[in-house]
Design a protein around this nucleic acid. Structure first.
Lengths: 340, 340
DNA sequence: CTGTTAGCGCATTCAC
DNA sequence: GTGAATGCGCTAACAG
């Protein structure tokens, strides 16, 4: 027989305490069923032997594993670590262990991971899932599933609403006297991209600003660099980028071209993944990813306990973080809003 | 009995295929023991019923869980996600599931996590463990443990040697004509800090450079900012910082003070956590964290299979990544080394 | 090659 | 309140 751990079992404790397996089992799961006296005796024996309940055996018998799986598209994408961390620590508070899965943005891989985990978890948190609605619904019919940044009717989900922060950004730029701005887009199929683009358009309309949308399939530093020229060519004085990396790329190119930020041009990012650690520090929209991770886990645990509630739709607002890449529009008087 | 999954069991498959449990079991774990014919029959029946082996039951019976635990001090520290990702994907290749634990840099928490995982994993990867040598040794005596960036005799470990990269950095600066440089330190107790500081000193000595060490307990952007003035005050023309964040803070302060980088002053970071996504992009020492994660997992899996090899000490060299914050020393002719 | 027989460690009826 | 018996789903001797 392969290397098995030699931990004491419920039987040894029973013998040592002068009771039977059943009582020991009860002492650890429903002590109220036993007399205080026996419980004390059993705990003493257990402690003495260094007994720890066998998680696996218990899971086999009860079907409850005390594990949850968290699947993200890419652990290394700076958007996710805070989310993972928060989920982790929330799981911890309720004694759950968390499996981490990395789908590599690949639906097939995501599906494989879910399959691999399925046998030993009580539920899933799927972040920015790449699965089809049908697949998600299928999985959710077998085990509790909570989605983050994916909106599927009937499945509990946490949505980070970047629209609120983006609207603040547009208002901020308007207050600084900008009249014409551009939105530099992100991946075509991205829900966030659509959300952000629409928010820019709506706010701009309401505030009487002119906005040009520039498509940009691959959100990344280099993409931002490449697109900077066309941004300038629009004649706008400010830009809101799909994400921080794109914004950062634009900043780099502007610097190379001698376009001063924020004096000549204002830039705002999205997701706040770089914090203030760049120069000039980027004005951006907060991401709430930690809050999302925490909320998802609480929701999931709630579902475990109260087998009823599902189909919750919880949206988290974002807000603008004003730093140093936005300022008054060139040749324009200030108009209320001031930078910190 | 609580909500149990209603998946088909080995028995149903056996019935459907007209064989016994044993054969079905064998078909899934050692098919070579069966005739091709029966294996085919069994797989057909299994497929048809949607049978998937029950991980938990198997684990209970064999003592093998097919899980490993990865514990890091802080998931959100940009140094770790690539490591986690690599470990993940390596585990995946061998069908292992990975539990992720976040110790919050707290030994107690780390110990608690290990205890929580202990019952359902075959081994641990402890990254930058905060545990005492004794604790680590104790845990390693129960289950295979692989350490990353922690050097305990007798325990398999992967060490990232930033000294090689730092030495390259010093040589690079020397080639650019710098004569006097400063090392901006990191946390007092940090093994990496000591390693880097010593490497700077040694290389500088060998190359005849003058080096000043400036202590800096809290490695962070703001710390870098605060320390920039004293760095300048040394009269040096280049600095190597304990990490990228500190370097980035110095860069920000220099920019505010009108000190041009790299024209007036050269800066190199450590760990390459920001990639090229800043402006000017930072010359820095690579971190190898992904390689470390991958190596650790391979080592662990190796230990599972070949129950012998332990006490491996595997060190990963780092190298200099030359970007845009280093250039020729002011008033000095170039001397060989050229930037890409 | 395949069936038979025991467990793995624990939770949970059902009696007492 | 507590003990005895059964089963969770699977693997692993041991036979044949």
């Amino acid at each position: 027989m392969p290397p098995r751990q030699n931990r004491p079992t419920i039987n040894q404790v029973a013998a040592a305490a002068g009771v039977t397996k059943s009582s020991v089992s009860r002492a650890f799961s429903r002590p109220e069923m036993l007399s205080e006296e026996t419980v004390r005796k059993i705990f003493a024996a257990a402690e003495q032997l260094g007994y720890v309940p066998n998680h696996t055996a218990r899971a086999l018998s009860t079907g409850r594993h005390g594990n949850i799986a968290l699947i993200v598209p890419d652990v290394a994408n700076p958007f996710f670590p805070p989310l993972i961390r928060a989920a982790q620590s929330e799981a911890d508070r309720s004694d759950y262990c968390v499996f981490l899965g990395n789908s590599d943005e690949d639906p097939k891989q995501e599906d494989r991971l879910i399959g691999r985990f399925a046998g030993q978890v009580e539920g899933f948190v799927l972040v920015s899932s790449r699965l089809s609605d049908a697949q998600i619904i299928a999985h959710a019919s077998r085990r509790p599933v909570v989605l983050i940044n994916r909106d599927v009717k009937g499945i509990s989900r946490i949505l980070i609403d970047s629209a609120t922060g983006v609207a603040e950004a547009v208002a901020h730029l308007a207050n600084l006297g900008h009249k014409k701005l551009v939105y530099v887009g992100g991946p075509h199929g991205s829900w966030s991209n659509k959300q952000r683009r629409n928010a820019v358009r709506r706010s701009a309309r309401e505030l009487g600003l002119d906005v040009t949308v520039i498509a940009n399939e691959f959100a990344a530093f280099e993409a931002g660099r490449r697109i900077a020229a066309s941004v300038l060519a629009t004649g706008a004085t400010a830009a809101i980028a799909f994400d921080d990396l794109t914004a950062q790329g634009m900043l780099a190119e502007f610097a190379d071209q001698g376009v001063a930020v924020p004096a000549d041009f204002a830039v705002v990012g999205c997701d706040d993944v770089l914090g203030a650690a760049t120069y000039p520090s980027l004005t951006t929209v907060s991401n709430r990813s930690a809050a999302a991770g925490k909320a998802a886990l609480n929701l999931l645990i709630d579902i475990f306990q109260n087998h009823a509630i599902r189909d919750v739709r919880y949206v988290l607002d974002t807000s603008l973080v004003i730093r140093k890449t936005t300022g008054p529009a060139r040749n324009t008087r200030l108009n209320g809003d001031v930078q910190s």
